[in-house]
Nucleic acid binder design. Sequence first.
DNA 1: AGTACGCCCTGGCCGC
DNA 2: TGCGGCCAGGGCGTAC
Length: 273
Amino acid sequence: MPELPEVETLRRSLVKKVKGKKIVDLTITLPKMVRRFISWEELIKRVCGNTVLAIKRRGKSLLFMLDTSDVLIVRLGMTGQLIWSSEKRPVKVDKYTHIIIHLEKDERVLFRDVRQFGEVYLEEKRNVENILRMGAEPLNKEFTPEILGMITSSTVKIKNLLMDQRRIAGIGNIYSDEILFEAGIHPLKKACSLGSAELKSLHNAIGLVLHEAIACKGDTFSDYRTLSGGQGTYQHFHRVYQREGESCSRCSGSIVRVKLSGRSCHYCPGCQK
DNA sequence: AGTACGCCCTGGCCGC
DNA sequence: TGCGGCCAGGGCGTAC
């Protein structure tokens, strides 16, 4: 389940491998992975022959900036992977590889996705922000405790708010649990009830946890892999996520799991008030 | 406005 | 061994 740290890790690798290179061909074996009102035929037509000027990230989406007015947008969903394949180290294409971006010299980026929740689409650069409709980037320096305070002026439960991409971009189920533990805030607490000390603590925890996870090259709790097929290591440092019944590293109490809007939510009742 | 739920989808796991 | 049933969940649409 790639969230901001996993997608940022992929982005950094993609910059090294793909930036400045020409897309010579695009293979789409599962057309329904192409979404948002563009046909796969048109996608291929508008992508092939163009050079990738830059690779950006917005929330959990990767943006391949082309040397035309278009951006190729990739969202990995739950189980999506981007895998680097070269002549020296070719990667086998299996039944879960739905899209292949072909560069020159037999270099490829494979888009593999078991559950098919991911998507690829094309949008004009000037429309990207409108289409993505995403909230604040939590690692930008503009993301201050004051901005966070404005975002949290809602009666939504703080856990749901952290995962709402239109409010804050890039945080999913794993990191929202870990961030709230780090901040010592109960996940079911109403966002608007947070005091200024809690907001500061939450802001700090967001930066801390996301940077830590990026330093780990992400979290390979399940399907996520780095561009070269390796694993991230953040899963070894979970403090609450998927640790139901285990003891809290801080107070030795028992980690609890509850259902919240169809998602599991883990926290320590002793540390998170 | 907030929330619950179903849908998309498949591998993995459980119980029988 | 094998099979049915259920679960995980990001994002979106819909109903309340």
